[in-house]
Design a protein around this nucleic acid. Structure first.
Lengths: 126, 126
DNA sequence: CAGAATCCCAATGGATACTG
DNA sequence: CAGTATCCATTGGGATTCTG
């Protein structure tokens, strides 16, 4: 693993910094929503996620879940019913990520008025 | 303001949720880097930001700073020297955002090995 | 030095139709 | 039901050039 990158040498100003990769993923359109939804409801089936998360398309739901599964954030369980039943659950890693995401969401929520004000003033003084 | 959106009614699963706007911005390529850089160094001039943040282009630096300025996260100061001197500083709002961002970065840093492992295993079982 | 203005390519993501 | 495969519009973002 750490052949060309020694721990402790990571610098956020470098493109390769893993922090950027994680934040980039978090910041995409649907990831945070999927995580938050799973945190709130626990295990959900694909169709349930799709109906709870308003506006998400089949494609983006699947794509987002695949990414999260690959990163070890969600677990995908398949029951061999007919038709097949697929459910998703946050892993322990996913739960800890959900907590961190909640911090950001709380910040956004707490400061939304301040931001809106700043925008209004900025836009007024164009 | 809150004419069609009553406080407390925000739902993260709705596209209009301000949380998503903020997270979306945080997640873009350069915003987090600019914030972290300003947090680390304090006030910086445009050129300094450009040389510290490796790989950023003139266009993206300016664009990112404009967004942050509009949201009240950074303050832009112009000194009427010749040629003009422009410096950027995090506002109190920006400092609190930097702290929240640091939480995410810490999470990413603490779990990067776990994520890398999960990816390796996932990719192996394709 | 700081930044505005173009041009242009690659990645996101939406809509739709199809498979097991 | 869950997922894949296309097609396509929009956007993000890089390279370059120009101005005060």
């Amino acid at each position: 693993m750490d052949t060309d990158q020694v721990r402790g040498k990571w610098d956020a100003t470098k493109g390769a910094c893993p922090t950027r990769q994680v934040l980039g993923r978090i910041g995409d359109t649907w990831t945070m929503l999927v995580i938050s939804t799973l945190e709130k409801h626990g295990t959900l089936r694909s169709g349930q996620l799709k109906s709870v998360i308003e506006g998400i398309t089949q494609k983006m739901l699947t794509q987002t879940l695949r990414h999260l599964e690959r990163d070890g954030v969600v677990r995908r369980d398949v029951l061999p019913t007919v038709p097949v039943t697929v459910s998703y659950t946050l892993t322990p890693l996913g739960l800890s990520l959900a907590a961190a995401v909640a911090t950001m969401r709380t910040w956004a929520y707490d400061h939304m008025d301040e931001i809106a004000e700043a925008r209004d003033e900025y836009d007024a003084n164009i």
